[in-house]
């Protein structure tokens, strides 16, 4: 038979195993009942098989979320590896759903599975995209809100990879602040 180059035979292993979650807002159900684990993967090829198969974020009904987290970490503040952490939050305006959302989400996924945050990749827990009528949100979750150098490096790298211009700032909020916030949003601990 034809000789296949070995590179195309083996699947390329990822540093981490990742799980994709889906949340659909069904008000007459418990919050956690609306959160579903789709599947987990640990190779490049299995990532693409999943990504190419599921609905694009921009096509999800309002109220839905996708979350990609390291396997074993649940996409919620309460999880052991999230509770001391926080998130870089990117608020999208309404027209960005058609222009940027899918690109931003895919680029974020490539950063996660490719371990693009170098020595700070271990601080990464996962990422979430929230589809909302009032404006979609993309966030990158880290496990420790008290590590400024890791958080700032991760935030700058995220902006660079998403080609977000310098003049547009993004903020980092600790989950604890978000949980106990009085106003509409928690105050930013960091901005880049």
């Amino acid at each position: 038979g034809a000789m296949m180059a070995p590179d195309s035979l083996i699947k390329h292993p990822l540093q981490n195993r990742w799980a994709l979650w889906f949340f659909k807002n069904d008000r007459n159900k418990e919050w956690t009942a609306n959160l579903k684990l789709i599947t987990a993967f640990d190779t490049v090829e299995d990532f693409w098989a999943l990504y190419n198969h599921v609905q694009k974020a921009s096509k999800l009904p309002s109220g839905c979320d996708y979350s990609l987290f390291k396997d074993g970490v649940q996409p919620m503040w309460e999880d052991e590896r999230n509770k001391d952490g926080g998130r870089w939050l990117i608020n999208l305006n309404k027209n960005q759903r058609m222009t940027d959302l899918d690109n931003f989400w895919l680029e974020t996924l490539l950063c996660l599975i490719g371990e693009s945050f170098e020595e700070y990749s271990e601080d990464i827990c996962g990422a979430v995209v929230n589809i909302r009528n009032k404006g979609d949100k993309l966030s990158l979750w880290t496990k420790e809100a008290g590590r400024p150098d890791a958080i700032l490096k991760i935030g700058r790298k995220l902006k660079e990879r998403l080609s977000i211009p310098a003049k547009i700032q993004i903020g980092f909020q600790s989950h604890r602040d978000t949980m106990t916030k009085t106003g509409s949003t928690a105050k930013d601990r960091f901005r880049v």
Binding site: H12, Q15, E45, W48, G114, S116, S121, R161
Partner: peptide
């Protein structure tokens, strides 16, 4: 220990491999 990194170019190239 050794770390497995992939840059976006490589990952995108793998998108449509069989």
């Amino acid at each position: 220990g050794t770390k497995i990194f992939y840059d976006r170019h490589f990952l995108l190239k793998c998108r449509n491999s069989p």
